[in-house]
Amino acid sequence: MDYKAIAQQTAQEVFSYYQDISGWKVIKSSDTFICRIITQSFAMGSISSRDFIDLVYMKHYEGNVDIISSNSVDFPGYSPTSNYIRGYNHSCGYVCTP
């Protein structure tokens, strides 16, 4: 399998999403938001479905550095349910530089 070709094709596809502005509109311009992520069960059900409630924050720094960070939080708008096991993420994110 040619992993390098797959990686290059994936990068090109994601970049094309960035370039294609047709049909997209800005609905929120705040950097900070609460995100609920739901995962499906897997390994033949031995690992249950989970949901994660994360605070996501984006910040631009000098030197053309962007950071997208997140951390799990408790948020009243997304109370735990019996459908999912509540998962928690530690501080994580991406540092994007030229």
Rank of each mutant, 00 (worst) to 15 (best):
74 D>L: 08
28 K>G: 12
79 S>R: 14
84 Y>T: 06
37 I>T: 15
91 S>I: 06
50 R>T: 06
9 Q>V: 03
43 A>V: 10
18 Y>P: 04
45 G>W: 03
71 N>A: 00
81 T>E: 04
82 S>E: 13
63 G>S: 04
77 G>D: 14
15 F>N: 13
24 W>A: 09
46 S>V: 09
24 W>H: 06
18 Y>W: 07
60 H>D: 07
59 K>N: 10
47 I>C: 03
96 C>H: 08
98 P>K: 09
96 C>W: 06
83 N>K: 14
62 E>S: 14
27 I>A: 03
5 A>M: 09
15 F>K: 14
77 G>Q: 14
20 D>C: 04
23 G>T: 01
49 S>I: 01
48 S>G: 01
6 I>W: 07
30 S>V: 11
76 P>C: 05
32 T>K: 12
49 S>K: 13
14 V>E: 09
12 Q>G: 08
37 I>P: 00
77 G>H: 10
96 C>V: 15
59 K>G: 03
90 H>G: 11
66 D>K: 07
66 D>R: 10
2 D>R: 03
76 P>Q: 05
5 A>G: 09
28 K>F: 07
4 K>D: 11
37 I>G: 02
30 S>N: 14
60 H>F: 07
78 Y>Q: 04
58 M>D: 02
90 H>F: 08
43 A>E: 11
28 K>L: 08
30 S>W: 05
67 I>Y: 05
97 T>S: 12
36 R>M: 05
